[in-house]
């Protein structure tokens, strides 16, 4: 479905000193700086996959999506999506993809969404009866039947996002690119969107590429994760492998009745994270050490609560962003 090899995108910026003098100077002489947004990126995605693109702001996720959809021209490398070269922007290609951006809206603000959908029907040349069927089906799934005839600007962010999703699904694309579809939404709305996406993907077998800063989105939806740091691919594998990147250590959280001694030598190898009044700690403990360590803590300190589990994916992500060297370069 998507194959890219050594894909690269450079942007050009110029710098400007502050003040009138700076403006004058840059008016006559510009200091240009090339910025590599996507660097030598290779990836291959099969039909029906649900892939999460992870990475901090400015890592190049969105640029990658925009090259996949033919919005932005690659600077170098080979790219093929659905057998097309995206930047050729052929009509047939455009009919088979869609892009949803959580921070932007494709609907007209001052008219009801229903009217905008009608325009989309004509763009994608979908027959009326089929279109109505899809519209009905989608609006039931998303529970927005009563909102179709309300002006878009009057909708809440969550409601509008549902409309945006509908707008991009009405032509039943083969690939859907979702760029932070849950950004800014409250927890309930996030969960609704997630549930919808999961069901939709199961039903249609559509290929979906998702970026999100909410690890819950990725954890719940994606089988495969690709990590991008500074434009380069740093990890590509199953979500389980990603979660195990920092090792199979367990995550142990302990709560105490009263503040305890944080300098005790037992803590040192366990990467402790204390709360401010020293009554709670989060630890990383390896499988072999688990029994011994836990019983020692229980004996030594006034423990009131205690649980253990896999390392949360948020923690993996946080650690990797802070210390990218933990992912070996070029690891597949």
């Amino acid at each position: 479905m998507i194959v890219c090899e050594q894909l690269t995108k450079n942007f050009r910026n110029y710098e400007m000193d502050p003040g009138v003098l700076g403006a004058l100077k840059s008016f006559f002489h510009r200091r240009y700086r090339d910025i590599v947004a996507v660097d030598d990126f290779s990836l291959s995605i099969e039909r029906g996959e649900f892939v999460g693109l992870l990475g901090p702001n400015g890592a190049g996720k969105t640029t990658l999506m925009k090259m996949f959809t033919g919005v932005v021209a690659p600077s170098a490398g080979r790219l093929e999506v659905l057998g097309f070269e995206p930047f050729d922007r052929s009509i047939a290609f455009r009919k088979r993809i869609s892009l949803v951006m959580g921070q932007k809206s494709q609907l007209w603000w001052d008219i009801p969404a229903r009217t905008s959908f009608e325009l989309l029907r004509r763009y994608y040349e979908v027959e009326s009866s089929i279109f109505e069927q899809r519209l009905k089906h989608l609006s039931e799934l998303l529970e927005v039947e009563h909102l179709l005839n309300i002006h878009v600007r009057k909708l809440s962010l969550g409601e509008r996002m549902k409309m945006e999703l509908m707008a991009s699904l009405l032509h039943e694309p083969d690939i859907i690119f979702l760029d932070e579809p849950t950004i800014g939404l409250d927890l309930v709305a996030q969960r609704n969107i997630r549930a919808f996406l999961r069901d939709y993907q199961r039903e249609h077998g559509t290929t979906i590429i998702l970026t999100s800063h909410y690890m819950a989105d990725v954890h719940e939806l994606c089988e495969r994760v690709v990590l991008i740091l500074q434009g380069q691919k740093r990890f590509d594998g199953t979500i389980e492998d990603f979660e195990n990147l920092l090792g199979t250590d367990k995550f142990v959280s302990v709560e105490f009745k009263e503040p305890v001694d944080v300098t005790d030598s037992i803590w040192r190898p366990l990467q402790p994270k204390w709360n401010s009044d020293r009554t709670e700690v989060k630890l990383l403990v390896s499988d072999d050490e688990m029994r011994r360590t836990v019983s020692e803590i229980l004996q030594t300190f006034p423990v009131v609560d205690f649980h253990t589990g896999k390392i949360p994916i948020e923690h993996v992500m946080e650690t990797l962003l802070a210390r990218p060297e933990l992912v070996p370069l070029g690891k597949e």
Partner: peptide
């Protein structure tokens, strides 16, 4: 005022 001047000259061709 400085910001006003800077803004006005930010885009060469435009200016």
């Amino acid at each position: 005022m400085q910001i006003g001047i800077t803004n006005q000259m930010a885009y060469k061709i435009n200016f």
